[in-house]
């Protein structure tokens, strides 16, 4: 079908082009940005000296070099109330001041200048909570390799570690065997581990949660005999936030959690209490 144009129609065609001019054709320039943001890694443990602060630079997607760039020789200042110190760089991005002891219930600030911006962070070291354990010794039957244990014999009560947490803070637990050259509860594990670089000391770490107890089931959680040290760490919200899922997809990507201003990373205070559990052979 042939469309016959009339003057009216021609006018209409012009009219239809007019609105086009109202719209700017912008083209988004896709550039990869070479970012250079300082990353602080600082853990302040109550009662311990300030000996593990690290400052590095974030990896830029645009950068071909995949080596970690550390920032050394920065004038890093840490202060708390009227105490302050300039940290001493010891290489590889690490800084310390072994004379500066961290005290609980104090807040600590870090700051330094980078590229014209003041990079700062602030944290509070919480007070350690006294933890108690329901029993200090537990007897477990050793399972010989190849044997088929009687269910009744591995019936052990969970050992409960408890503390007060009316504030609803985050805690996590580390269980570590202090025994040298420990024996395994289940000898099949020993065989397995022996074939994989030799026996190591058992270590188990839970994830920070808002809780006030931790149940240790000797059979499920422990693999060795020996005196186990159970450390209950109290951590701050900014640390617990690191465990929250950061999206890895463009559906829901966002800036990661950090309590550093003009920078990235973590600056946080931790306190702890220790109880002991002796695991013996039945």
């Amino acid at each position: 079908m042939i469309l016959q144009t009339s003057p009216m129609q021609t006018k209409w065609i012009y009219l239809s082009i007019l609105p086009l001019l109202l719209i700017q054709c912008t083209r988004d320039d896709i550039t990869t940005l070479d970012t250079q943001t300082p990353v602080i890694e600082g853990y302040l443990i109550a009662g311990a000296p300030l000996d593990s602060v690290r400052v590095t630079l974030s990896y830029s997607y645009a950068r071909a070099d995949t080596n970690l760039i550390t920032l050394d020789d920065l004038p890093v200042r840490v202060y708390s109330g009227d105490r302050e110190t300039m940290l001493i760089p010891i290489g590889s991005g690490y800084y310390q001041d072994t004379t500066f002891i961290i005290e609980a219930t104090h807040s600590y600030n870090i700051e330094f200048e980078w590229n014209g911006d003041l990079v700062t962070a602030q944290t509070y070291v919480p007070e350690g909570k006294a933890a108690s354990i329901s029993q200090e010794e537990i007897a477990v039957q050793q399972i010989a390799a190849g044997s088929f244990p009687n269910p009744g014999s591995i019936d052990v009560d969970p050992v409960e570690v408890t503390w007060d947490n009316p504030e609803g803070d985050y805690y996590y637990v580390v269980i570590e065997n202090t025994a040298e050259d420990p024996e395994y509860i289940n000898e099949r594990f020993a065989e397995f581990e022996n074939g994989n670089g030799g026996p190591g000391r058992f270590r188990m770490i839970s994830r920070p949660q808002i809780t006030d107890f931790y149940a240790i089931n000797a059979f499920r959680d422990l693999t060795q005999f020996g005196l186990h040290r159970v450390v209950i760490f109290r951590v701050n919200p900014e640390y617990a936030a690191l465990y929250e899922l950061s999206s890895t997809s463009t559906q829901n990507i966002s800036q990661p959690p950090t309590n550093v201003e003009n920078g990235l990373g973590i600056w946080t205070g931790i306190s702890s209490d220790t109880v002991y559990l002796n695991v013996v052979k039945k």
Partner: peptide
């Protein structure tokens, strides 16, 4: 993401985070 960084966590592992 235009970059990423690592933070050593208290349990010994390293957390990877993106810069956006």
């Amino acid at each position: 993401p235009v970059g990423f960084y690592e933070v050593r966590l208290l349990n010994g592992s390293t957390g990877d985070f993106f810069e956006v």
